[in-house]
């Protein structure tokens, strides 16, 4: 039990401290793909350290909610990171929340961030908040149905359970339902974490922003918390994609050997996904805001096919 809880805490901390590096890795890969030298992958750590040491400037129109939101966003994302299986399954924390809890915890962060965007009364913040919740709402059905697909083949919405069942039945990992659900979740990941083609994480033009426009007012340590939470959310989606669909390498018992293997395999999965995102972001252009629903409905159709195919093929 103690070992179990310590493992959970270690997982959470690992995810927390790895997250900025993953964002940095994607940026570095993108720079290389643009024939640039680029900043090293650990650049985001420097940026976070800098932000934590800077002053905070707050609008005079902002209320207590503006000060509360970064903490809610950070804490909820961190809670998700503790729940999801990073290295080992099944852990006791599995019982705190299942896949649905993960989705709604992330939504909790979005809710507060959107409110904080509206709080200082700037038009940019309102615009960002409006777009962010639109995208989040439209991504929701895909998420739910993809969860349905996973749950029906695993017989459970518990994260550890899903990973364990797929390990036990390797063939199910290449079943059409599984692959379709993976594709659907991948698209949702792009939308939810504000990557191309839904949102450009490097944009400077307010009118094209989604996520960035909401946090235009934040500075210093608050901004650091929000950026860190965003990076963590990105990693959480990597973990979901990597460990629920391709659960091999996860430690089934808490031995040193198993955990070391898990760390190694986890690193490989993260790098592979980071390369995929970087290549994709080099290849595609940002979609017009009102084309995003089309992308999301495509992902929904994929998810729906995933569920029905697992029924038809059963």
């Amino acid at each position: 039990m103690t070992a179990d809880l310590m493992m959970a805490a270690a997982q959470g901390l690992l995810a927390l401290f790895l997250a900025p590096g993953v964002v940095g890795l994607v940026r570095w890969l993108k720079a290389r793909l643009q024939n640039r030298r680029g900043a090293p992958p650990w650049q985001p750590y420097r940026e976070l350290r800098k932000l934590f040491q800077k002053e905070v400037v707050v609008s005079r129109h902002a209320s207590w909610l503006f000060h509360l939101a970064p903490f809610v966003v950070f804490a909820s994302t961190l809670a998700v990171a503790v729940i999801v299986p990073v290295l080992a399954v099944p852990l006791l924390v599995d019982r705190i929340g299942d896949l649905l809890v993960v989705v709604y915890l992330l939504l909790l962060g979005t809710f507060f961030l959107a409110l904080a965007g509206l709080d200082p009364g700037s038009a940019f913040g309102g615009m960002g908040a409006s777009r962010e919740v639109t995208v989040a709402a439209l991504a929701e059905p895909t998420l739910a149905v993809a969860i349905f697909a996973l749950a029906r083949s695993a017989g459970s919405t518990n994260l550890g359970e899903i990973a364990a069942r797929t390990t036990a039945d390797p063939l199910s990992a290449v079943s059409p339902g599984h692959l379709l659900a993976f594709a659907a979740l991948f698209i949702v990941m792009l939308a939810e974490t504000g990557r191309l083609p839904v949102d450009n994480p490097a944009t400077h033009l307010e009118l094209t922003m989604i996520h960035e426009a909401m946090v235009l007012e934040y500075s210093g340590r608050y901004l650091a918390l929000i950026e860190w939470a965003a990076a963590l959310k990105f990693l959480v989606f990597f973990i979901l994609l990597g460990n629920l669909f391709v659960p091999w390498g996860l430690a089934r018992a808490l031995t040193l050997e198993a955990v070391m293997t898990a760390v190694g395999v986890f690193a490989v999965k993260v790098v592979v996904l980071a390369v995929a995102v970087a290549v994709l972001e080099t290849r595609v252009a940002k979609l017009r805001l009102f084309r995003v629903p089309e992308l999301l409905s495509a992902s929904f159709v994929l998810a729906l096919l995933a569920v029905t195919s697992s029924f038809l093929l059963r």
Binding site: L118, G126, A137, L138, F148
Partner: peptide
């Protein structure tokens, strides 16, 4: 069932949007 799940998920997602609007516009800003 998947369609019902999707409709429920969509409506709860939209409820978030709606209450960000309701709370944000009513209570926040100027």
């Amino acid at each position: 069932m998947p369609i019902a799940v999707a409709m429920l998920a969509l409506s709860s997602g939209l409820a978030v949007a709606c209450f960000v609007k309701a709370f944000g516009i009513t209570f926040l800003a100027l």
